[in-house]
């Protein structure tokens, strides 16, 4: 159980679990593609071309062109970068703050713990799209506000997960030992307890990433997220809807991109869960 993370072990890990392997391939493929898309795309992302409007996929335009003659592949490459960036930052915000809250309330318990967890229960029973919409209606539309809204939204689920992990280890012998040696609580939480929860945190992060991609795409689709002319996958789907009959590929390729990204992260999280034996 306490083996170190050597390459041999990682290889063994991947062979054991095909879900992690496929998930990793999908996620890294889109990560690399969107990273390239920030610096180089086959065509200029916002350039319109009247001579090639609504063209079907071809060797020149792998994913076809949209109603303004813009290259869909270029827009997908560039736009998925924003989607991934938003998702990563929201998971970071929700993960860090949620972990802190969960660890502290779980370790110390008491009335604060009780109140925060009751609040959490209420928040968790609400559909997340609705909460995101509400937060955005307070903050106003825009990319940064979507990041903030989703980040705040992810705090409860992380807090609850970390709290239950901390409670599980709080009264173990090694933690008592540490306490008797006079180690301060913060150090106990950070060095003695949280490393044991790493697989759970990783799983929660992968699930969070998924929800963030979905939520960002939905918000941009509804016109409340990333604003034009910046391409984002959700926004592209919204624009594509009016031209569905003439250029369905403008809707299909961004849609498939979202699906594969989410599928990749979902497989990763499930793989982690299976490996950790939960």
């Amino acid at each position: 159980m306490k083996k170190s993370w050597t390459f041999a072990r990682i290889r063994e890990f991947l062979r054991l679990n095909p879900k992690i392997l496929i998930g990793l391939i999908l996620v890294s493929f889109f990560a690399v593609m969107s990273l390239i898309g920030q610096f180089w795309t086959p065509y200029i992302v916002t350039r319109m071309d009247a001579s090639s409007v609504s063209e079907a996929p071809s060797l020149l335009h792998w994913m076809g062109t949209d109603n303004f003659g813009r290259d869909v592949l270029s827009r997908v490459m560039n736009g998925s970068g924003i989607t991934i960036l938003v998702a990563l930052i929201t998971v970071l915000i929700g993960g860090i703050i949620g972990t802190m809250i969960g660890a502290l309330t779980g370790y110390f318990g008491g009335i604060v713990d009780e109140i925060i967890m009751r609040l959490n229960d209420i928040l968790l029973s609400f559909p997340s799209v609705l909460l995101a919409l509400l937060l955005i209606s307070f903050l106003g539309p825009g990319t940064i506000n979507v990041v903030l809204a989703l980040g705040i939204l992810f705090i409860p689920s992380f807090a609850r997960m970390v709290r239950s992990e901390v409670i599980r280890y709080r009264d173990r012998d090694f933690v008592r030992n540490a306490r008797l040696q006079g180690i301060r609580p913060l150090r106990i939480i950070l060095i003695h307890i949280l490393p044991n929860a790493r697989i759970s945190i990783l799983t929660a992060a992968a699930i969070g990433f998924n929800n963030a991609v979905l939520a960002e795409a939905s918000m941009s689709y509804l016109g409340l997220g990333v604003q034009p002319p910046t391409p984002s996958l959700g926004r592209m789907l919204f624009e594509a809807q009016s031209f569905l009959l003439n250029c369905p590929w403008y809707a299909i390729f961004p849609g498939i991109t979202i699906i594969l990204m989410i599928l990749g992260a979902a497989l990763l999280s499930e793989g982690f869960k299976e490996v950790s034996g939960a």
Binding site: A217, Y221, G234, A240, L244, I259, L260, A266
Partner: peptide, 22 residues
Amino acid sequence: GQVMMAVPAFFLGILITYIFGL
């Protein structure tokens, strides 16, 4: 099922519009 869970609702809506509507 795994794939269906990864499909965003609005994309599914657009697909249904395209296939059944158009």
